[in-house]
Amino acid sequence: MEYLDFFLKAFVAVFIIVDPPGNIPLYLSLTETATEEERQIISKKATLIAAILLLILTVTGNFILEIFKVTLDGLRIAGGILLFTISIDILLGERRKRKYVEESRESIDVDSLATFPIALPLYTGPGAITAAIVLYSTAEDLVLKILVLLSIIVTYLIVRITHVYSIKIVRVLGRSGSNIIARLMAIFLAAIAVEYFFTGLLGKLALL
């Protein structure tokens, strides 16, 4: 039961930050000038690159923290602030989405578009990286660490599925429905951010 609870916690955190349903309209906007065949190639490459990148950064997170002399509590505090900022951006504006769409329309290079901005930073951004490193670092045994990696894999499988059925999903939900889902996710993301921040702050205060 403990493992199941931890997996659900990890999966929900990663899923909310990556936000597969909320990013469907943006994915379609970024690939609107591509053919269906190009769109599928972009989707496969972007999903694979995003997943591999996040898995690598998750596993090597502790090593990276040691190099930069950053504590886990420090990462929690910084991550909490970052995730809260991202949640506010999702709730109150579309600036990030407009920026990505404008940049993508400058070129339809399949490889470049799959890498940026779809894989990075849309689906594997600073928020996902921070959350994954924190989750993996706090996992107390090998099974829990594997569950964190599994939650990442499952999330990106869902990303790929949303791409395959993106047009149908948008028809069912509508653009407003997708935006509503994205904003509901943002509320939960804000709550996760607050938990990260205060857990890290309490850890820092305990050392005083």
Rank of each mutant, 00 (worst) to 15 (best):
T58Q: 09
V59G: 02
G61K: 03
G61D: 09
G61A: 05
G61Q: 09
N62E: 14
N62A: 12
F63S: 08
F63G: 00
F63R: 07
I64P: 00
I64V: 13
I64Y: 11
L65M: 14
I67N: 02
I67W: 10
I67T: 10
F68T: 11
K69I: 13
K69D: 14
V70T: 12
V70W: 10
T71C: 07
T71R: 06
T71K: 03
L72A: 02
L72Y: 03
L72K: 10
L72W: 01
D73A: 07
D73T: 02
D73G: 03
D73R: 01
G74D: 01
L75R: 10
R76P: 00
R76G: 03
R76I: 04
R76T: 04
I77F: 00
I77S: 01
A78W: 03
G79C: 07
G79S: 08
G79K: 04
I81D: 00
I81C: 02
L82H: 06
L82W: 06
L83K: 07
L83Y: 09
F84V: 01
F84T: 00
T85P: 00
I86R: 04
I86H: 06
S87E: 05
S87A: 15
S87H: 08
S87P: 04
I88W: 03
I88K: 03
I88R: 01
D89W: 02
L91H: 04
L91K: 02
L91P: 01
G93N: 12
K97N: 15
K97V: 12
K99R: 15
Y100Q: 14
Y100F: 15
Y100C: 06
Y100V: 06
Y100H: 11
V101I: 15
V101C: 06
V101F: 09
E102Y: 12
R105F: 06
R105C: 06
R105Q: 14
S107R: 13
I108E: 10
I108H: 11
I108T: 13
D109G: 11
D109M: 11
D109A: 11
V110I: 14
V110M: 05
V110G: 02
D111R: 05
S112H: 11
L113W: 01
L113F: 01
A114H: 09
T115G: 09
T115A: 14
T115L: 14
F116Q: 10
F116P: 00
F116L: 10
F116N: 10
P117R: 05
P117W: 00
A119L: 08
A119V: 11
L120Q: 10
L120P: 00
L120E: 10
L122I: 13
Y123M: 15
T124A: 13
T124H: 02
G125K: 06
P126D: 10
I129K: 00
I129N: 02
T130V: 15
T130M: 04
T130W: 04
T130Q: 01
A131M: 15
A132M: 06
V134K: 00
V134S: 03
Y136P: 06
Y136T: 07
S137W: 05
S137K: 09
T138N: 13
A139P: 05
D141Y: 09
D141F: 08
D141T: 04
D141N: 15
L142Y: 01
V143R: 13
K145G: 01
I146A: 14
L147D: 08
L147K: 05
L147F: 09
V148I: 12
V148C: 11
V148T: 08
L150G: 12
L150P: 01
S151V: 11
S151M: 08
S151Y: 11
I152D: 07
I152E: 05
I153A: 15
I153Y: 04
I153T: 15
T155D: 04
